[in-house]
């Protein structure tokens, strides 16, 4: 089972993930229209791209925007979860061993103490995001079953992986759960809200372009105050 999941199934998952998200990104850009969006992308491309990069960058910095500063709890939950969600899959030693086996090369790895800490923090971050969904009326009204599913499937690989790592209960069982949920995330990403993995950059960048091309980019002396 594990051999299949870390063999052919991993290939399929990665292919769907990278292929699917690439398609989403390309489709997004192809669907932009200067007439419908009312943004003259092409004639002001350089200024637009500067706006896009700035807009993305500020939101990737903890406390970089008014929004993050005004909502520290959300910001903490968001960054704790997402930092783990990006670093752990890429640089975990166990994952690198798979990579080495499959492709004969590997990336640098995180020391296990760092990896453990990031995992715990990511789980805490996920819990914080869940708490908001329950506790805050303005988030509760928006929350659907679908949102809970996305949150659950995103946190699941961390929880299952960490249980396996601690050798609590049946190791093989938890490891299988970890691989299954991890691959589920990869396969679902292009078809669900998880597509924000790339569409965040597209959408965030688009609004940055919009502001820098059309909404005052030529007038402001400083970059837009996100």
């Amino acid at each position: 089972m594990i051999a299949f999941l870390t063999g052919p199934m991993l290939w399929v998952s990665l292919l769907v993930f990278f292929g699917g998200l690439t398609v989403r990104a390309v489709m997004y850009v192809r669907g932009l229209s200067w007439q419908l969006d009312r943004v003259a992308y092409k004639p002001h491309m350089a200024r637009g791209l500067r706006g896009a990069v700035h807009s993305i960058r500020m939101w990737l910095i903890p406390g970089g925007t008014y929004g993050w500063r005004q909502q520290p709890f959300m910001a903490a939950g968001f960054f704790l979860f997402h930092i783990g969600a990006i670093l752990l899959p890429l640089f975990l030693i166990g994952h690198q061993e798979l990579l080495q086996m499959a492709f004969g090369f590997s990336l640098p790895t995180l020391p296990s103490s760092v990896a453990d800490t990031l995992t715990v923090l990511a789980i805490i971050g996920g819990l914080m995001l869940a708490i908001r969904r329950i506790a805050l009326p303005e988030v509760r009204i928006l929350t659907t079953t679908y949102d809970w599913f996305i949150l659950a499937i995103s946190v699941a690989p961390f929880v299952t992986g960490f249980i396996a790592r601690l050798h609590l209960g049946n190791y093989d069982f938890w490891l299988t759960c970890h691989i299954l949920t991890g691959e589920a995330v990869l396969i679902l990403a292009p078809f669900t809200k998880l597509s924000h993995i790339v569409l965040f950059f597209m959408s965030r960048g688009q609004l940055g372009m919009d502001y820098n091309i059309k909404r005052g980019g030529a007038k402001r002396e400083t970059a837009f105050p996100w």
């Binding site: 850009v29 932009l32 303005e138």
Partner: peptide
């Protein structure tokens, strides 16, 4: 209703961070 708006509608994370930005939300007793 193309890329931009469809994507906006689809990827909204329902996080509610927009709530406090809206003066109408704030002034109408949240």
């Amino acid at each position: 209703c193309q890329s931009r708006i469809r994507t906006w509608l689809e990827i909204c994370a329902h996080c509610g961070m927009c709530a406090d930005s809206c003066f109408l939300y704030r002034v109408n007793d949240r």
